[in-house]
Computed example of a mutant assay.
Amino acid sequence: MLHSDPVFAQLAAADFPPFLPGSVWLVGAGPGGPGLLTLLACHALGRADVIVHDALVSPDILSLAPPQVERIHAGKRGGKPSPKQADITIRLIELARQGKRVLRLKGGDPFMFGRGGEEAGELARARIPFRIVPGISSGLGGLAYAGLPITHRDTNQAVLFLTGHDETGAVPGAVDWPSVARAAPVIVMFMAVKHLPSIAGKLLAAGRQPGDALTIVSHIAGPTQSVLETTLGNAADLRDVPTPAIVVLGPVAQYRDQLDWYVDEVRRHVFG
């Protein structure tokens, strides 16, 4: 564990920036297991007085912090009772004003559809010192666990990132779908499973082909990771897709036959 492992004891003596009382660190926890945390995230876990964490932060990561650290669940999951974003930010400010070292721990990266920019903006307006610690996003490095290089010289020189819902939970109304459909061969969609039939319909109407490869990676980088491969034209027929998930549209799916290394590792771990 972080608080007793000799490796992390050495990290504690490293020249990391001090986690000062009365400040908030917005830290990315990466896509899954503790091995994908950054060293600075580990440092923050060992120094925090209180951790305000999202639903997607695994218990294995939370267990790395010393046992006396207060843990506050502030996760938002679709279709379930969730704290309001404004209330989360107010809580961060209140805790910092109490002189605590506040670790705001987010799945993936705080600035990749994680509302980290909104929270940091409110902290700045409240004159609360803060630091941003980037994390590995599921939609970037995390997809390597499914054998999906989101860029490849033979298929695409551009990639587009898209969120599947707006702040109301509906399909984003401000998206220029014809432009999105043409912008890049590969589109990576966050939080898109719920509205995938609607999104697929908009992309098809805007000119994407029904046969375009569609890959859905659920529970990325965890022992229950699963990958569903289909086409854009069949998206409306999908049922009971596990979430959280990242949806990838585009030709990079063809590389999974060679690059899908993680499924074999999970089998060796589970079945010996």
Rank of each mutant, 00 (worst) to 15 (best):
A158M: 09
F190T: 04
E167S: 14
D154P: 07
P172Q: 02
V175D: 04
S138T: 11
G135Q: 00
A192S: 12
A124T: 10
W177E: 01
E122W: 01
D166Q: 09
A144R: 04
E118V: 02
P178F: 09
F161H: 11
M189C: 11
P149M: 01
H152N: 11
S179K: 13
V193Y: 14
V171L: 01
W177Y: 07
P178G: 07
H165C: 08
V188W: 10
V193R: 03
R153T: 11
P129F: 08
P172A: 10
K202C: 02
A144W: 04
I132G: 08
A205T: 14
A146W: 11
A126F: 06
G139F: 09
A205G: 14
Y145T: 13
G135F: 02
S137I: 01
S137G: 06
G207L: 14
A120F: 07
A200Y: 14
R182I: 02
F190R: 10
G164V: 10
A124S: 01
F190W: 15
A192M: 03
T168Y: 08
Y145P: 08
S138K: 09
D176R: 14
T155S: 12
V159N: 00
I136Y: 03
G147C: 06
E167R: 15
N156D: 12
G207V: 13
A184Q: 01
H195W: 05
G169Y: 10
I187P: 01
V175I: 15
T151K: 05
S198V: 15
A184K: 04
S198C: 09
A200C: 14
I187E: 05
V186E: 10
E122P: 06
A184R: 05
T163N: 02
E122I: 02
F130Q: 02
A174Q: 15
H152I: 13
A205E: 15
A144N: 01
L162Y: 06
A146F: 03
V188Q: 04
A183M: 07
E122N: 04
E118Q: 10
I128T: 00
L123Q: 06
Y145G: 03
G141N: 13
